[in-house]
Each structure stands twice: as structure tokens, then as C-alpha cells.
């Protein structure tokens, strides 16, 4: 499980200060799938980097159930896989760092690759695969790590629409089968509603949690029927309205958000 309490992050460059995150508090329960949406430039990535321990927050705290059990999937799949390692070794390397026994590692790697539908590509290099398949490798790597929480940073923003739908279903099925806790960051409202049990809406920068919404759609979802469900439409309308309100409310802060763009992208 994940607990974020009073998280604040201020970037300093010389004498200029930019407040990226103002005051964020939320929890993700064990085994939950939570989606974070917000207007672009709202500091989603800053938040994720703070949770992952890649950035030191200015104040506040982040508690992860088990710190070593945290895995992350980035948007830039092409740049987050090691181009000099095969698919198998890419998945295996974090496990070796975790000092998992060899036999168990082999098992985990094989299971993870099967789970994401990548049987038979073990000895290929990532750059020999399509973009969608590369992102599957990154997901397999995260899953094999057996994290107590899986962070996904706009993982499907750079793949085509068809592949994206497939990968969304993959995330749902992995989550249901493995019971892993997932925090999924996206700027796509439909995606957030389709995937999440709960959707957290962030304000524009400096960021606070604007609102949250429980997604009361059936657990079994599919691209065709779920998206046609009137309840789905109602939920997405609500999220959309909130995001628009967030943008309008902090219109004056957009200058500050602009200065942030290099850290946020």
C-alpha cells in the first residue's frame, strides 16, 4: 500500500522558486488500482518521481509498504529498456540486483513474459520489437519484480490507438490476476475511467488533489461494452468537468506551470 501525506515540492533555480506540488495527501490501499489525472503540466511526473524516490520532496512524506518492492513503467519505453541487453536480461537484471535465487529468477522471467504475451522473444533485443511490444517488456520487467506497488507514468501516451487498447486490457487483466497495487498516471480521461477503481483528479500547478471519484463500473470491463455504457459516459463527463474547472480556477498560475515544463516533461 501507498500513503502520501502533505507532499510538497518546490524547485529552486538560482533565486527563482517554482512550487510544483503544494499539498498532496492520498492513499492507495493494498491491491487497489488508482488512476491519477490532471491537466497537462500539473506536476504528475514530479509526484511520481517523489513517490519512486527519484526526487527528494521539499516536505511531507511518502510511505510505501515495502520500499524495495516498488516498480515503475515510464512513458518513454524506448529509453527505459537497456538497448544492450536482450528482452530476457532486461527483465532479469532488477531481480539479480534484488538477489533473487537463479532458479526463481528464471521462473519469474518466464512467467512475466508469458503474462504480457511475449513468449518467444526472450533473446531478441528491445529495438528489434515494435513500440507496443517494447512497452510490454517494460511491464513484464515491473511485474516480475513482484512489487508491492507498481507505478505507471503515462505508459501508453506514445503508442498507437489500437496497441493502446490492447495494453489497457493487459494492465486490467494483470492487476486482476496478480493482485498487484497500481498507481496509474495519465492525462487521458477515458483511460483513467476505463482502468481505475478510483480516479484522483489533480489541480493545475501548484498541485493539490482536486477531487476523487469511485468508478462503480463492473469489474469485468472490455473496450466495446464498457466504453458504450451510459455510466461510463456519466463518469467521464464528471472527471472532464472537474479538470476543466481546475484549469479555469488556476488560470493565473499557468505562468508558473510553464516554467515547470522542463521538470515535468
Amino acid at each position: 500500500m501507498l500513503e502520501v501525506k502533505g507532499l510538497r515540492k518546490v524547485y529552486r533555480s538560482g533565486r527563482r522558486e517554482v512550487e510544483a506540488l503544494r499539498d498532496l495527501t492520498f492513499t492507495v490501499a493494498e491491491g487497489e488500482l488508482v488512476c491519477l489525472v490532471g491537466p497537462s503540466g500539473c506536476g504528475k511526473t514530479t509526484l511520481l518521481r517523489c513517490i519512486a524516490g527519484l526526487l527528494e520532496p521539499t516536505s511531507g512524506e511518502v510511505t510505501v509498504g515495502d520500499k524495495s518492492g516498488l516498480a515503475i513503467v515510464f512513458q518513454e519505453y524506448g529509453r527505459s529498456l537497456f538497448p544492450w541487453l536482450t528482452v530476457r536480461d532486461n527483465v532479469d537484471l532488477p531481480l539479480r540486483q534484488k538477489k533473487v535465487a537463479r532458479a526463481r529468477r528464471r521462473e519469474l522471467v518466464a512467467e512475466a513474459l508469458t503474462a504480457v504475451g511475449l513468449d518467444g522473444t526472450e533473446s531478441a533485443y528491445p529495438w528489434q520489437l515494435s513500440g507496443g511490444m517494447q512497452q510490454r517488456v517494460a511491464i513484464a520487467r515491473a511485474v516480475a519484480y513482484e512489487p508491492s506497488i507498481l507505478l505507471m507514468d503515462e505508459p501508453f501516451a506514445a503508442v498507437d490507438a489500437q496497441t493502446r487498447a490492447d495494453l489497457e486490457d493487459l494492465v486490467r487483466s494483470l492487476w486482476q490476476r496478480l493482485g498487484v497495487t497500481i498507481l496509474f498516471v495519465t492525462h487521458d480521461i477515458d483511460e483513467a475511467v476505463y482502468l481505475g477503481q478510483r480516479v484522483l483528479m489533480l489541480s493545475a500547478s501548484p498541485t493539490v488533489v482536486q477531487d476523487e471519484l469511485a468508478v462503480d463500473l463492473p469489474a469485468e470491463r472490455d473496450q466495446l461494452h464498457t466504453r458504450a455504457d451510459p455510466r461510463f459516459a456519466a463518469l467521464r463527463t464528471r472527471v472532464y468537468a472537474q479538470i476543466q474547472a481546475a484549469k479555469a480556477r488556476t488560470g493565473t498560475a499557468s505562468g508558473a506551470a510553464g516554467e515547470l515544463s522542463s521538470a515535468d516533461r
Binding site: 538560482g14 526526487l55 529509453r79 538497448p83 522542463s262 521538470a263
Partner: peptide, 13 residues
């Protein structure tokens, strides 16, 4: 690989 240095610890001109 297009790369940017580690943005955090940059030394100014």
C-alpha cells in the same frame, strides 16, 4: 539515444 544530462545537478555557465 537522445539524451539530456541529469537535470538536477547542472552547473551554470
Amino acid at each position: 539515444m537522445t539524451a539530456a544530462g541529469a537535470g538536477v545537478a547542472r552547473v551554470r555557465p
